[in-house]
Nucleic acid binder design. Structure first.
Lengths: 195, 195
DNA sequence: CTGTTAACAAACTAAGTGGTCAGTTTTGAA
DNA sequence: TTCAAAACTGACCACTTAGTTTGTTAACAG
């Protein structure tokens, strides 16, 4: 069962949902169709279970959990993005940010799945905002910073760079991105008081 | 012929390439399959012609041409992104950035098409870098700015925010994004000389 | 009027697609 | 040992896919 979902997510991530047939998955697993439809109502049902069981966890462990804590959110987020992109650089099987890819694929096509995906996006957003607000409260961020806006900007840039990284020269893309991310962070960090 | 390609791009953009059948396009055009395959070798050939004839032009007119000129690139890029996102906000048929969507869809699946798409990305990148360098030369940007890195950062953030905008509250996403884009720009613009 | 050709129509093929179902094996408790 | 429920098989169904083939117009040069 776990094996089913893991393989499913791998294939869906690599080939896309609509371009991965149930037969594809079953062939890789050497399983029969009957077994599959015994466990799942439909391909869509299968995918939704994957979202809830695997995708949500994956996003949490790579993008949310690392930014929790009471340290400087700038440091935490920088490290978090750096790590996430580093695995992408070193993983030849990188097809961009899973979440962003699926958002693109299902947009305007499957409302049910979109709701599940957007839920994960919202969780990420809320956690980012919270981390930033906490950072502001603790004096790491300038007190004029718009945390909601900053979160949107950070999410955008991360989604986008992961898309760009798949094309060519991911390592250099990562380096350039990180340098400008730091530049942005420098502009919202707490200014030293000239007393 | 023009009608064929225009309708094709509309459908490919809205539903994705793999989820749009030749029959879909022909049904909307009230045309026969014979006519289609008289003009095009294959579905892929059809799409590649669309990329070259329509997509490249669309990217040029919305993202490249507006940033050409000798004004402050910060102003130009800000206005350009603002306009591009504004049409997205007001267009109920918005499915994100066409280029970014296709990059996601074809990544790892069709190398030929990927090459064509990446060509467009490169053109955009080169023009962005040029605009920034010119801005640096003309004293609009701080002379320590890494123009390549800045271009990557700008492209990433734009791709990403267009993906996010399709989910919910595009207008508010736009507003938040633009505010932080300005914040970023403020951090790379030429510092006033304290003489 | 004739023959040629560009432009299309429509029926067709072969290979998939998601999904079903009658039947078989495996498991585990009584 | 029994037997029912759970787990699984693989052939099958209706349908869709990209692409082909054969046939029909319409225009037009000679």
């Amino acid at each position: 069962m776990q094996r089913l979902q893991t393989t499913g997510l791998e294939l869906f991530y690599a080939q896309g949902y609509y371009d991965t047939s149930v037969d594809d998955i079953l062939k890789k697993l050497e399983l029969s169709k009957g077994a599959f439809y015994y466990h799942f109502d439909s391909k869509e049902d299968f995918f939704i279970q994957i979202i809830q069981n695997l995708l949500a966890r994956k996003i949490y462990s790579t993008l949310i959990e690392p930014i929790e804590g009471h340290d400087n959110p700038i440091t935490l987020i920088t490290k978090c993005f750096d790590n996430a992109m580093e695995t992408a650089v070193h993983n030849e099987m990188d097809y961009g940010c899973i979440l962003s890819n699926f958002l693109t694929e299902f947009n305007g096509k499957n409302e049910v799945i979109m709701r599940h995906l957007n839920e994960i996006v919202t969780v990420w957003e809320v956690n980012l905002i919270t981390a930033l607000q906490k950072g502001k409260f603790n004096g790491y961020l300038d007190r004029h910073v718009d945390c909601e806006a900053s979160a949107t900007f950070l999410m955008s840039s991360y989604f986008g760079v992961r898309t760009l990284m798949t094309s060519a020269a991911p390592a250099s893309k990562k380096y350039r991105f990180m340098s400008q991310l730091r530049q942005y962070f420098k502009s919202i960090e707490a200014k030293p008081v000239n007393s």
